[in-house]
Amino acid sequence: MTTSDPTVQPVPASVADWVDAADTTLSNPKRAVIALGSNLGNRLETLQGAVDALEDTPGVRVKAVSPVYETEPWGVEPGTQPSYFNAVVLVRTTLPPGSLLERAHAVEEAFERVRDERWGPRTLDVDIVAYQGVLSDDPSLTLPHPRVHERAFVLAPWHDIDPAAEVPGHGPVAELLDEVPGQGVERRADLELRLPE
């Protein structure tokens, strides 16, 4: 399920060489990939709010925002929850992984995320998918995300904005995307998230 759209502007072929001469606020930044999801309330508004909140975080700069995908809920019976809106953002950050995770949780809480049940409905999900190629088995933050290589709703938007990306320990996003079922994952061409100015 490889996606390709000339209207999507990917980041440079070598993401490792991201350079923003105007961005003098970050010193020795690292690359991170963050997945967003929402299936309660105004889903698009919530995702945009999450993008803006990440940009407003000291030590974080949002460099790319994917198209929006609508997806069936993961891990539950079909029809038992509303569908999700999903997107992926690429950031540069001086925050270490643990601090970035704390910020992700704070953004979720700002949008009244409730953690009552595994794979339950939520106003907002903010997941760190990958961080500068780091491999970590820390149960509080496993990197890369332990199920990212199985999830088309993360791989598809990630591939849209970084076609050359790789999931550390699993291989190129493009190849992984071709291996996972794409059913129930639909790009919403009528919806758009703004890249913060």
Rank of each mutant, 00 (worst) to 15 (best):
N42S: 13
T24G: 07
K30R: 15
L36R: 12
V15Q: 05
L36M: 08
A13Y: 06
E45V: 00
A35F: 07
V19I: 03
W18D: 02
E45Q: 07
A22N: 12
W18E: 06
A32F: 03
L44V: 03
V19G: 05
P12A: 15
I34K: 04
V33R: 04
A22C: 04
I34D: 03
N28K: 14
W18N: 06
N28I: 01
P12V: 13
L26M: 04
A22Y: 05
S38H: 08
D23I: 06
L26H: 02
N39R: 13
P12G: 11
A32L: 07
V19T: 12
A21R: 14
A22S: 14
A35W: 05
L26P: 01
R43F: 02
P29K: 15
A22F: 01
A13N: 10
T24F: 04
N39A: 11
P12C: 12
L40F: 07
S27H: 09
W18C: 03
S27D: 08
I34Y: 04
I34H: 03
L44G: 01
K30W: 00
A13S: 13
D17I: 02
S38K: 06
V15A: 09
K30G: 00
L44R: 11
D17A: 15
R43H: 07
V15E: 08
A35V: 05
P29Y: 11
A22Q: 13
N42Q: 14
V15M: 10
L40I: 10
D17L: 14
S14Y: 07
W18M: 09
N28W: 02
I34M: 02
V33K: 05
R43T: 02
V33S: 08
W18V: 06
G37F: 09
L40G: 08
L40K: 15
G37T: 06
A21K: 12
A32I: 04
A22L: 06
N28Q: 13
S38E: 04
D23L: 14
N42D: 15
S14K: 15
D17M: 12
L36C: 05
G41E: 13
L26W: 02
V33H: 05
S27L: 02
L26Q: 03
V15L: 15
V33N: 03
K30I: 00
R43A: 03
K30Q: 10
A32C: 06
N28C: 01
A21N: 04
A22G: 12
W18H: 12
D20S: 11
S27T: 11
P29V: 10
D23W: 06
G37S: 09
S27G: 00
D20L: 10
L40D: 07
V33F: 10
W18F: 07
L26D: 01
A32G: 06
L26Y: 02
N39W: 08
D17Y: 05
A35Y: 09
S38C: 08
T25R: 14
N42M: 05
A21W: 06
R43C: 03
V15R: 12
S38V: 05
